[in-house]
Amino acid sequence: MSINLNVPEMSNKPIDKCVTKLKVENASLYYGSFQALRKITLEIPSCAITAIIGPSGCGKSTLLRLFNRMNDLISGVKVEGNVELDGISIYDSKIDVTELRKRVGMVFQKPNPFPMSVTENVAFGPKRHGVKNRGELDEIVEKSLKQAALWDEVKDKLGQSGLALSGGQQQRLCIARVLAVEPEVILMDEPCSALDPVATLKIEDLMRNLAADYTIIIVTHNMQQAARVSDTAAFMMMESDRAGVLVEYGPTAQLFTNPKDKRTEDYITGRFG
């Protein structure tokens, strides 16, 4: 069956050549006694954009935060199962979490630049990881801002507060801040939900440009956005009494035009959610 969905420029980038960057096997996560993820198993390819879609509260963000162990910051979180980055289990007790987070960067739902200058925002990560030389830092700042397609807009106000920028610029500043630590994976938690359509398109263009060099995982509410930017997509759902179920995972084109699961079809055609 095929669903007639208004999807412009459906991505058809082949994902077969890519290697598995992140692997999740039977992962479950509990907030205290509440189970937020249920035996999730999926493999995320490198050099591709993977979208995680699903209704509110189904555990999309929790799944995303599994990859850089941000869930650790919440007390009472328990993780079961196995999560691997390049074949190394990241929940191993010997793992240096700061090193992991350097390799797996994150962009948040609400743009959250630090209350510092634009330069200081971008230089924050490299400084924490030992870059002290001013010239070297300036180079990193310029390169990251250019990568984030923000350089031309802020090059004359690098000393201004990051909070003085517009919402879309702030979000690209946050992306530049992540790029500055040279991650391998970038997690994006609904990066456009607080932005207007124009700013959203800019971020999406940026994501497509970055996809060549980075593994990107994006959580989004916006079906169109998932269809526009992602190569693979995962659909998660919450059932009446249980959250965090991975329903379907596959190439975006297939998930949107020919879903295997009835629930996926219902969701993307807007029958619930």
Binding site: N68, M70, L73, T98, E99, L100, R101, K102, G105, M106, F108, K110, N112, P113, F114, P115, F124, G125, R128, H129, C174, R177, V178, V181
Partner: peptide, 15 residues
Amino acid sequence: VPREFKEASYALGAT
């Protein structure tokens, strides 16, 4: 101090 600032810092690999 907003939680977002702290989260951003931790997510960049700060201790």
